[in-house]
Design a protein around this nucleic acid. Sequence first.
DNA 1: GTCTATAGGCTGATAGAC
DNA 2: GTCTATCAGCCTATAGAC
Lengths: 214, 214
Amino acid sequence: MASEAPSTGTAPIADRATRTRRAIMDAAAKLFADKGFKATGVRDIAAAAGVNQALVSYHFGGKGALYHDILSEAVDHAAQLAGEADLDSADYPERELVRIFAAAMASRPHLGPMILREQLDPEQLLRPESLTKMLGFMALTEAVLAHIPLREEARRYDPQIVHLTIVGPLIHFLIATRVREAAAQKAARPVSLPTLDEFVETLGDMLSHALRPT
Amino acid sequence: MASEAPSTGTAPIADRATRTRRAIMDAAAKLFADKGFKATGVRDIAAAAGVNQALVSYHFGGKGALYHDILSEAVDHAAQLAGEADLDSADYPERELVRIFAAAMASRPHLGPMILREQLDPEQLLRPESLTKMLGFMALTEAVLAHIPLREEARRYDPQIVHLTIVGPLIHFLIATRVREAAAQKAARPVSLPTLDEFVETLGDMLSHALRPT
DNA sequence: GTCTATAGGCTGATAGAC
DNA sequence: GTCTATCAGCCTATAGAC
């Protein structure tokens, strides 16, 4: 308690409070993604994190504030990944676009489900902060399309439609993996389970064919 | 109360009980789609339907049974649409496939959101009935692909991947319509809002380019 | 079939000891 | 910071009058 970082290494060993905060955020992220906000109890979060229930309110100010912190971190991280991408030097910007979204969702497994649940609920949709971030996220697609030599008829494609054509299958692939795993357990015949990387390549391939000149 | 159908028309005027059941199912379908199972209260359903709260349990046996009835009806309806489609005489079976899924979701607006929420929750996923229906739904894509003269490299595409490439954007388009409407209210510049039909055509177009020989 | 009233369980937040 | 104990509110389901 007296010193914040030990002298034995460059990475400081987190004190108990820091570990508590982290454990709560990790456990809550998974539960919010799997069950949604309402169906996730503070008791469940505390149990999964291995901490006392009262610490959720103490450290984050309540279940709602905790939820907001988790979603914000994930969206900001995705925006950061997108900002770091070097699209001008990429041979296939459309493939790079798919990879960015895939990397963001792979790095924060709760991002896809939480965004999806946000969009599913029309009432929660008008929260100003989320909406602004979501629009910025979608605007990236428009910027990338400017770098691609589009096929003639592809120029008419609405950037938002292209965005949906990428993000839709990606999120769907991630959540459908569970379905196919469950199916593989039950079904007599084995079910093929492509990896995310394989799916990303296929999706980029299909997108190229749909947008690029022959 | 004495007679079930009036003599004035072929379509019988529903008695109060029938109208009650229908009002509950309609109201609950919208709420389950928008908020999910846990966040939807029986009070909300009854209020939205304009009926007494106790009638939900009386007519359906409880909130859980009501949910199951609504989801089953929608999935069965989609399967029926798929079964009726004449794929052999279609010039573009891949476009027909997109149209079938789109028609099912347009006809039952709660189908997409409810299926999505089912898949998002890993625990609820192993309910045997839902899983079986979901797999049958996905198997349709495989059947349709057999009718399409695929481009050489497209033969390697996993049918399940193609399925995700269709259903993913479709569901995403439907729920994202709300996002864009909300955005259009707030944003200074107007946001384009393509119709479902336009989106279906674009999606079929992109799918053709991705699968068909040049 | 419909309604009112209520039981029984669960939920999020917090006061106060340590 | 952490923990225990507890409260007030909300939830679904149902008994019983009509």
